[in-house]
Design a protein around this nucleic acid. Structure first.
Length: 291
DNA sequence: GTCCAGGGAATCA
DNA sequence: TGATTCCATGGA
């Protein structure tokens, strides 16, 4: 595989930290020079900011790297327009967007997103990243680039014969059985990922995802939003989003007792079909910046 | 030692 | 339906 380069000039909606540290992805790591290196499909890429430009350097197996990058980083979507629309909702949203103005929602592989967010349940981001890395090292394919080794995310077939005990040894904890069962269901065709990608009915796709072991409402919504399914109308509710929605709008004394349906309705009323994108700004702002 | 993490599933009313 | 409880693990 030959090294390729792509240069993104004067991008308005593009910031490395905003994109890679906002909790949507787990396989991008900051380098000593401030650039980020990551892997998706069989592409290994480093992104570095040079003045106003972003330099993508890396290797890819299929097509050319530029096409892979444009697809993965969602370059066909006009985020400037969406941000403008959301900014008009209220001052807090405006502030959140100003804080995370470089966020883009990545088009991540559906299978990888399913497994990654099953692992994310009641877990923290550094540990999620560690588990996914060990899973890839153990069962993925090795790719070498510039003297370093990278590993692809294992396919369902590559996880076919992995036992629950082996997952436990990788540090998955109680999620081991969920990963095992979901992989089995997908291999057996009980849930057809290709079918899901072709189904335009979000409610049907969500129902199907919920049949997978370890996939509840929050994980299902993350899969719908952060994968190639790209449903911006869903609103994943985790502890941070519940916190911010309660602080801003609901104002319950005990935030842990706030009704999820109340949050969902509030989100749909305020953000409509952009609820998912709005959620990402709120999550990012509330978690990394103080209210 | 205690609390918490981008929750889900089982159990019980 | 809705509320509680348990679930591994590692870092603060």
């Amino acid at each position: 595989m030959k090294e390729q380069q792509y240069i993104l000039e004067k991008a308005k909606t593009f910031n490395l930290k905003d994109i890679f540290e906002c909790g949507q992805c787990f396989r991008w790591n900051e380098q000593e020079d401030g650039s980020y290196t990551g892997i998706w499909k069989e592409n290994v890429v480093n992104v570095k900011k040079e003045g106003e430009d972003y330099i993508f350097t890396g290797i890819c197996k299929s097509r050319n790297l530029e096409e892979e990058i444009k697809e993965y980083f969602d370059f066909n979507r006009d985020y400037e327009k969406l941000k403008k629309e959301l900014s008009q909702i209220d001052d807090y949203m405006k502030e959140s967007i100003k804080y995370g103005k470089g966020i883009r929602i990545l088009n991540q592989d559906l299978w990888e997103t399913i497994i990654s967010f099953i692992i994310s349940a009641n877990n923290n981001i550094p540990r999620i990243k560690g588990i996914i890395e060990r899973l890839s090292e153990r069962y993925g394919k090795k790719i070498e680039w510039r003297g370093k080794e990278y590993y692809t995310f294992p396919t369902p077939e590559e996880l076919k014969d992995v036992t629950v005990e082996e997952y436990r040894k990788l540090g998955l904890g109680f999620r081991d059985i969920r990963l095992y069962e979901t992989t089995k269901m997908i291999l057996e065709g009980k849930v057809d990922l290709k079918e899901l990608e072709e189904n335009s009915n979000t409610i049907e796709v969500r129902e199907k995802l919920l049949t997978l072991s370890g996939v509840g409402p929050k994980v299902a919504d993350c899969i719908l939003l952060f994968s190639t399914l790209k449903r911006f109308e869903v609103f994943p509710i985790d502890v941070w989003v519940r916190r911010v929605m309660n602080d801003l709008y609901i104002k319950n004394e005990d935030e842990t007792k706030v009704n999820k349906k109340q949050i969902e309705k509030m989100a749909q009323d305020k953000f409509g079909n952009l609820a998912g994108l709005a959620q990402q700004y709120l999550f990012n702002y509330r978690k990394f910046h103080f209210l």
